[in-house]
Design a protein around this nucleic acid. Structure first.
Lengths: 108, 108
DNA sequence: TACAATATGTCCTTTATTGGACATATCTTA
DNA sequence: TAAGATATGTCCAATAAAGGACATATTGTA
């Protein structure tokens, strides 16, 4: 039996830190929104509204953390997102913080 | 020069995961609200409204993650919070998730 | 030909959160 | 004695976020 709190916590983290999770996915591979949605839903076993995803992707692009290029694949127009160096730096800042939390579990 | 994103990210994490940060602090030592506020403000170098802190502490107690006992110290009434086993388990679930994020940085 | 899947977007009403104020009480210091 | 620090709480109007619908287009399948 898995951890009873885990699902609730994962849901909170993905909801509040959606941009970070998107950067994590795109640091592995450039992808388009629809595929990112599928990936989050299968990986985290949660629902993700596309009405929340697409504005977040556009916002990350406006901030310079992602860049996009339009492609047409089998008649379907896809917007492929790639992480930028600024995006990688932002993600690394997040990793630094949670690394610190793990190394210093009891906040003195 | 420190990381320019760090302050913004720390603020987001403390805001969205305030309960987790409270459990982290109380896992180290039982403390009262006012002292917790000071600790968060000096540790994270951010402001924390007591109007946000006290309801969160009460909520954690209702969930069984904290227990409290009233003390009077030099005429001041303090409500000392101690983390429960359930609280420790919840915090450990959080650590498990961020540990996984660090070990699996690129979400495949 | 209708329905499901792929693909990306916006809009709007409802719900949740925020910041700041209101409230009360004691102790210490100027 | 007034102001600042310690200590804990609530309340509410303004703001932000969420869920779900609306919108459009193509492809594949029953």
């Amino acid at each position: 039996m898995p951890d009873p709190h885990q699902k609730e916590l994962v849901q909170r983290i993905v909801k509040n830190m959606l941009d970070i999770q998107l950067l994590r996915i795109l640091q592995a591979n450039p992808l388009w929104g629809y595929m990112i949605k599928k990936k989050i839903e299968t990986n985290f076993k949660i629902k993700l509204r596309h009405g929340a995803l697409y504005p977040t992707l556009n916002s990350l692009e406006r901030k310079g953390f992602l860049k996009s290029q339009k492609q047409t694949h089998e008649g379907r127009a896809r917007k492929i997102y790639t992480i930028t160096n600024a995006g990688k730096e932002y993600l690394q800042s997040y990793y630094n913080i949670i690394k610190d939390q793990l190394e210093n579990k009891d906040l003195q």
